[in-house]
Design a protein around this nucleic acid. Structure first.
Lengths: 131, 131
DNA sequence: TTTGCAATTGATAAAAATTATCATTTTATT
DNA sequence: AATAAAATGATAATTTTTATCAATTGCAAA
């Protein structure tokens, strides 16, 4: 399945601008918007910043990407193929931490206790660490 | 222990501005900076926005508050008396979820495996749920 | 294939959020 | 009370994000 199809699958139009942004996201995890913009502009400098914001917005709405909120700074976008957690290091990097078992463990833990009635949709663990 | 002492305890000066910000934080959980500013200004309109940024920054550095990662929005500040996690509900509320045992559990889990060399400083679990 | 319309974009400006600078004031210590 | 380091206010600049609107484009239906 190519990029255009992936986008169309979510019910939004597959414009060339959107395809380009999507392809940039695919190769750059946890990218802040200014980095995304830079990379997009190397391929096509005509795409407006406003458009990139709108494109990322629409991607968020349909669930193609998720908005990370990196502490102390700007917003980061992350493509969302599989559930994963994040490790924030002191040198401002974000590492993926895939641990499906941990996710399940937390879910089970929540099924007991005061919050057992909640309908859990997602669990994200953020780990802050020094290298 | 009064506010000034709590602040001094962390090794920074207890200015009146800092005390006021701290007291506002104590009664407003998960507040975005503009809300904090508003509340601070009802008590003392002279305090600059720049100062509030600096104060929250310094509080973060010494661990008096932590910067929440509220997905999809601006940065939220949260006073950190005890470590706690957050439950984000579909009606846009943020609930505290105190579970020290879970925190330890995750820490221990990370001590094995690929990330065992990381020096973990903090762990935050975000739970997204429908009520 | 062509047509039509809603959705999207570019261009631009405006608004909002954050950081920088620096002289002045203040805190905590001597 | 004197002192040095730290913090603040005032201000401006920078950065990030959103709004507006005319022109363009994707795509579904004729």
């Amino acid at each position: 399945m190519n990029t255009a199809e992936k986008i169309r699958l979510k019910g939004i139009k597959a414009t060339p601008q959107r395809q380009l942004v999507y392809e940039v996201l695919e190769v750059s995890c946890h990218a802040p918007i200014d980095e995304i913009t830079k990379k997009v502009h190397t391929k096509n400098p005509c795409i407006t910043v406003a458009s990139i914001y709108r494109i990322l917005d629409s991607f968020c709405e349909v669930g193609l990407v998720s908005l990370l909120n990196h502490p102390g700074g700007k917003s980061y976008y992350d493509i969302t193929p599989t559930m994963h957690h994040h490790i924030y290091t002191d040198d401002n990097k974000v590492l993926d931490y895939v641990d499906e078992e941990l996710t399940e463990l937390i879910k089970n833990r929540l099924r007991e206790g005061q919050f057992k009635d909640l309908n859990i949709e997602q669990i994200l663990v953020q780990i802050f660490a020094k290298k």
